[in-house]
Each structure stands twice: as structure tokens, then as C-alpha cells.
Nucleic acid binder design. Structure first.
Lengths: 177, 177
DNA sequence: ATTTGATATATCTGTTTGATATATTAGCAC
DNA sequence: GTGCTAATATATCAAACAGATATATCAAAT
């Protein structure tokens, strides 16, 4: 069965706004998107090749002098595929938190080890939360721009859940003390 | 570079409590652990083979009549590896939420599509939250049992974040209305 | 002049996912 | 007791993904 390759949708989504090179796409994914989805050169470049074969995107050589540069543009077929995916109600939402895994098996070690693991997690979250709050502050004043609105929604998702994480951290440390 | 295979740690963690077959391990992972980590036969069975070669686990044939059955037991070396992983402070915590991806690119479609995607997410979360609350209710009365305590902590993490998700869903739908 | 870091391409190895294949056993309906 | 179905139990395969690496250009600072 030909499984649906999710990276295709990420790329089509990005290309629906502007033409981009593979490298640009990677940078965009590493930005705000990375809070809820990741991508690597190892799947971006093959996906671009495949999608060009399927005529979901077209490429244009925009090399300047020695530097090779290929920009990709979404086709009508590509927009159709993106739209169908958006309208498809099923969505896989997965957490992959090594910290929780370590906590689950925490009984193997001294409680201090678990407390320390929670503290490390707490620091990570605190840092990311600050970043997200910066985003939110900037976006909040331009929610009439539709793209900003959708971006803002994903950012507030991050803020709300990270704040819940921090509250949990405090409770968890107390229970282990 | 020999990357650390996370499924190894899940398996060692489970085997640190009791001897299990590959099938048992899969069932355990599909239970409460699946909220924060997944596993499949496709990586469990190869991992068991490798870890036996590395003498982190030993196998024992417990077949009865025709049915082939192999139980695995953790070795001292295995316990060492598990302990080292628990003490290692670095941990990768990743969200992979297709719903947020769809929302991020929501501008491509009518707002109703995004609202519907949030509603579907909301239903998923509500269902999982109920399950987690069941777990919590049972565990809460036996927190002096260390294993229950650690299990309880991961469960409350789920409850707290899912409750934050639901609040966000309400806000997000309002903003899109 | 040179070194560093960012840009830009692409591939490789290993890991994980999801589906499939194969066969046994237990429980239930008829 | 026969046949059906679901659960048990093994294992493999293709596709997708992650992370590292290779190669080379370009811009900017030293």
C-alpha cells in the first residue's frame, strides 16, 4: 500500500504561499513548524524529485553564476492534493517524549534521577515557551491577516500546552520529594 | 555513528520488571506507554535479536506443544545500559501533530475546514482524556507502590496537557468563528 | 588573503512504521 | 464435534524518516 508521505503535504503547504528551494523549505520547517512537525534533507530532496515526477510541483533553475539553485512551484494538481489532505478528517497526532519514557521507568534508579530529568525538561520547556510568547506578541496585532491568524493559533497551542507542562513539573517534583 | 535505538530502552525498561515475549512487549507498549512512545513488531523483534547478541538480554524457549514462544530476561549488562540511559540528562521530546500542520496551512481552504479539523481533534482528546482519568483514579490509591507512582506521574502529564488542549480548542474555534 | 559561517545541492546508513505472511490456540455458535 | 472468529505469536518487507556526511559556492569578517 502506498502510504501517504506527510512531508509532501508540508512541502505543498509551504509552496502554496511562495516558490522555494529545497534549502528554503528546510529553513521554513526548522522555524515555527518544528514545534509540531520535523523534516530533514534526507526526505525533503527525494520528495521534491517524486512530486515533480507526479506533476504536483514544477522546477525552475534559478542558478546564479556557479551556485546551483532550483526553485519549486506548486501546480494546480499540487493544490488539489493539498486541499484534499486538508479536508480529510483523519489526522495522526503523536507525542514522542523521551522524558516521560524515562520517568515511566524511573523506579529502576534513585528518585533524584527522575527529579533531575524533570528539571532538564522544565528548562527546555521554559526556553521554548519564551520563544513562542515572542511569536504571539508579534502576531497578535495582525490577526486580520489570515495567514497570521492560523500561525497564531498554532503558537497559542504551544503556549497553552507548555504552560500546562510547567505546572505539571512543579506537581511532579513535589510528589517525588 | 551508531545512533542510540530508543526501542531498546523501552524493551529493557519493560524487562526490568518481568520476563516477556516479543508479543507481550508489543501489548505493553500499546497500553499506557503508547501515549508518549510507540513500538511495532518491525522494530521489536530485530531489537530483541540484536540485544541478545550484545548480551543485554537472554532468551528462554517456553513453547508449549505447537505454539512457539520465546521469553526474554534482562541481564546485568542490560540493567547497566538501562540505568545509564536513565541517568543521561539529554532527552528528545517531540510533538508530531498533523492537526496543527493542517491548521497551519488552513488558509488554503475555507475556515469551516479548519474548524472541523479542530472538532475532530477535540473528540480524539476527549476520548483519550477519559481513559487517562480512569487510570489515574485506580492508581491514586496506591502511590506508595513506587511503580504506581511513576505510572501515575506520566498519566497526570497526559491529563494536564489534554485538559489544556481542550481549553485551546474552545478558544481556537471562537477565533475562527 | 584567509577563514568562518551561511547557502545549496544530494546521498548514505540506520531506525521506525505499517502492512503483510504464516501458523497455533481458545472460545463460541451451531 | 465441527467450523468460524479472534487472539496469540512469530517474523519479514517496503517505504518513510532521521541524522550525519559529502561537496561546493558565496558573503563577510579578520
Amino acid at each position: 500500500m502506498a502510504r501517504e508521505r506527510k512531508i509532501d503535504m508540508v512541502i505543498l503547504g509551504l509552496l502554496s504561499h511562495e516558490d522555494l528551494t529545497g534549502y528554503d523549505i528546510k529553513k521554513r520547517i526548522d522555524g515555527a513548524i518544528s514545534f509540531f512537525w520535523k523534516g530533514s534533507f534526507g526526505n525533503i530532496y527525494p520528495a521534491l524529485k517524486d512530486m515533480e515526477d507526479q506533476e504536483l510541483i514544477t522546477k525552475k533553475d534559478i542558478s546564479s553564476s556557479g551556485r546551483e539553485k532550483i526553485a519549486y512551484h506548486i501546480t494546480r494538481r499540487g493544490k488539489k492534493v493539498l486541499g484534499d489532505w486538508l479536508k480529510d478528517e483523519q489526522a495522526s497526532n503523536e507525542l514522542r517524549y523521551e522524558t516521560l519514557l524515562k520517568l515511566f521507568f524511573g523506579g529502576v534508579q534513585d528518585k533524584k534521577v527522575s527529579v533531575r530529568n524533570i528539571e532538564v525538561f522544565e528548562e527546555q520547556v521554559r526556553g521554548d515557551l519564551e520563544l513562542l510568547k515572542e511569536y504571539a506578541k508579534t502576531l497578535k496585532n495582525s490577526l486580520d491577516d489570515e495567514d497570521h491568524l492560523y500561525f497564531y493559533l498554532t503558537v497559542t497551542f504551544g503556549i497553552d500546552s507548555y504552560e500546562a507542562y510547567l505546572k505539571w513539573c512543579a506537581k511532579a517534583k513535589k510528589l517525588l520529594a
